[in-house]
Amino acid sequence: MSDWDWPVVGRSWDLLMEGTKLTLQLFAVSLILATLLGLILALMRMSSISPLRFISAGYVWVFRGIPVFVTLLFAFFVARDLPGLSWLTPIQAGMLGLGVDAAAYKAEIIRAGLLSVDPGQHEASEALGMTKRHYMRRIIVPQSIRVIVPTYMSNSILLLKATSVAVGIGLVELTGITRQLSNSTFRPVELFTAAAVIYLVLTTLLVVPQEYLERRFALKT
């Protein structure tokens, strides 16, 4: 009845791992980009200078409103024509597109975290004569991390999965290589199952740093 050919996964293993490597590279670089950009956007949003707030709100509205696929198409087909970006390789365009898209979400997560800190903490710091720069760094940010970590990490799992969309601009990451292999071996069931298992392992592993960080930043009671 069944005519499985699971060894095809073994024969394709090296290529699958090549794809996984690119998936992880896309993930790591776009995560760093998204986090830095998200932090800047969150601080802009909370600034007292209204044009900065306006730009940040507009950025978040636009990139939360369009599919990551469309952002990737932009990064791939258009970004290279922008001044100073002619050196972009397709892989770098993928990282840029994913990072720019995810930054909108990271900005909202960071902002929500900073806003979650009791206003009394700002007041107490002000009353003690601390500068805003000092108490943001020492008092507000450390307390906001506790709130930020869980949503930041689950959002990062979404980013890891979103790297698969890079297949749409021709990158041969895990999903792309799986599609190619399945076309050439006519074994889609086995290969897509293998890819699903690899993704499951990666997304499940991301829970480990989350639990560590949550413990690290828990308040002592």
Partner: peptide, 21 residues
């Protein structure tokens, strides 16, 4: 929630026709 939507989509489109159970 652990695998990308695209894998699900490709499975439905490319793999289901070959799935014999």
């Amino acid at each position: 929630r652990g695998i990308p939507l695209l894998i699900l989509l490709f499975f439905a489109f490319f793999a289901l026709p070959d799935l014999n159970i």
